[in-house]
C-alpha cells in the first residue's frame, strides 16, 4: 500500500494584498512524480517554497510522512530542492557542492566522498569532480544541482522549473533522464513548471494552478482528455471550445464544451454525421503546415472557431494546403466532447 509523502491542507500565503496561494489541499503519494503546472504568478512556486520551508504559510498545514513540518526551518526538513538557477556554490568545486549536505550532517569523509562520486556518476558527470560550477555548461550545472540534492536521499525532491534555462533539445533529453532517475531512486518528486508538454510527458499526476488555487488535479490523461474548466482546457493543450449558442446548436445543450483538435475529422462539403458523431459546418480560414501535421483553423457557421490537427502521415499534405477557404464539415465522436463548464463564464 502506498502512503502519503506530503499532505497539504488549507495552505494559504499572501504577499501584501496579493493572495499567492489560496486554500490548497494536496496529497502527494510516496514515490509519485507530481507536477505543479500553471502560468507564472499562479502560486505553484510558492507552494513548493512552503514545502521546502523558505516561506511561511499564513494558514494551513504541511505534513511530511505524517509529521507536521509547517513550523520547521528548512534545514530540519527531509526534503531537498533543485533550484531554478541551480544555486550551486561558486566558491566550491563540483564534488564539494555535492558533498555539502552530507558534510553539514557530519557523515564521515570516506562515506560522503563515495556517495558523492556515486551521485555524480548517476547523473553522468564522473570526472568533473574538480571543476568549478563556472566551468560547466547549463546542462551540466543542472545535473550537479540534481546530484547535490539526490545524494542526501531525501524523502521528497522538490524541483523548481529546473529545465527552464536549457535549450529545447537538452530539455527534452533531461525530461527523459529525470523521469528515469526518479524511477531508479524511487523518491517522491514535486516538479514545478509552466510547460504543459513537460508536465504531460513526465508526471504521474498534474496539479493545474490558476490564481493561487488548484484548478484540477489528475493524471496527464485525465487533465488532457477531461479538462475540468475552460482554464485547464486552454492551458493544457489548445483551447478548443464550443460556447453557449454554438454548443446548443451543435450538441443540443448549453454550457462550455471542449473537443481536442486531433479528435476532429475534416470532410469536404456537407456530410451527415454517423449516429455516434457530432458535426458542425464551417469554412477553413487558415491552413498551417507544421511538418508532422497540418493545422486548420475553421470558422463555424454557428459562431466561434475550432482548430483541427491532422497528421501528415499520407501524401495529402499538398492537397490540405490548398483547402483554404473551402466549406467543410467537422466531425467527431461524441465520446470526445467534454463539458468544461455549465455556463459560459464559469471556471
Amino acid at each position: 500500500m502506498t502512503s502519503v509523502a506530503i499532505r497539504i491542507r488549507g495552505l494559504r500565503r499572501t504577499f501584501g494584498d496579493v493572495v499567492a496561494v489560496d486554500d490548497v489541499d494536496i496529497d502527494v503519494m510516496d514515490g509519485e512524480f507530481l507536477t505543479l503546472l500553471g502560468p507564472s504568478g499562479s502560486g505553484k512556486t510558492t507552494v513548493l517554497r512552503m514545502i521546502a520551508g523558505f516561506e511561511r504559510p499564513d494558514a494551513g498545514t504541511i505534513e511530511l510522512a505524517g509529521v507536521d513540518v509547517t513550523e520547521m526551518p528548512p534545514y530540519a526538513r527531509d526534503v531537498n530542492t533543485v533550484f531554478q538557477d541551480y544555486a550551486l556554490f561558486p566558491h566550491m568545486t563540483v564534488i564539494q557542492n555535492v558533498e555539502y549536505g552530507l558534510m553539514v550532517k557530519k557523515v564521515p569523509k570516506a562515506e560522503r566522498q563515495q556517495r558523492a562520486l556515486a551521485a555524480l556518476e548517476s547523473v553522468r558527470l564522473a570526472g568533473y569532480e574538480r571543476r568549478r560550477p563556472s566551468q560547466l555548461s547549463g546542462g551540466q550545472r543542472q545535473r550537479v544541482a540534481l546530484a547535490r540534492a539526490l545524494v542526501n536521499r531525501p524523502q521528497v525532491l522538490l524541483l523548481d522549473e529546473p529545465l527552464g534555462a536549457l535549450d529545447l533539445k537538452l530539455r527534452e533529453q533531461m525530461q527523459v533522464e529525470l523521469k528515469e532517475i526518479q524511477r531508479e531512486v524511487g523518491i517522491t518528486f514535486v516538479f514545478v513548471t509552466h510547460d504543459q508538454d513537460e508536465a504531460l510527458t513526465m508526471s504521474d499526476r498534474i496539479a493545474v494552478f490558476n490564481e493561487g488555487r488548484i484548478a484540477q488535479i489528475g493524471t496527464p490523461m485525465e487533465i488532457y482528455e477531461h479538462p475540468g474548466s475552460p482554464f485547464v482546457a486552454g492551458f493544457v493543450g489548445t483551447s478548443n471550445l464550443l460556447t453557449e449558442e454554438a454548443a446548443r446548436a451543435v450538441l443540443g445543450r448549453g454550457g462550455v464544451w471542449s473537443v481536442r483538435p486531433e479528435k476532429i475529422q475534416v470532410a469536404r462539403g456537407t456530410v451527415e454525421p454517423a449516429p455516434h458523431q457530432h458535426a458542425v459546418q464551417g469554412r477553413i480560414r487558415e491552413v498551417v503546415y507544421v511538418g508532422m501535421s497540418t493545422r486548420f483553423l475553421v470558422d463555424l457557421t454557428v459562431g466561434g472557431q475550432l482548430m483541427v490537427v491532422e497528421q501528415n502521415s499520407d501524401a495529402g499534405a499538398t492537397e490540405r494546403h490548398a483547402m483554404r477557404g473551402q466549406d467543410v464539415t467537422l466531425l467527431w465522436d461524441s465520446d470526445h466532447e467534454y463539458q468544461v463548464s455549465s455556463s459560459s463564464d464559469g471556471r
Binding site: 538557477d85 550551486l88 549536505g101
Partner: peptide
C-alpha cells in the same frame, strides 16, 4: 538562493554563514 540552498541541504544559520 545560495543561502537557501545551504539551509535546504541541512545547514543551520551559523554553518551557512561560515561556509557560504
Amino acid at each position: 538562493s545560495l543561502e537557501e540552498a545551504s539551509a535546504d541541504l541541512g545547514a543551520r544559520g551559523w554553518t551557512t554563514f561560515r561556509r557560504v
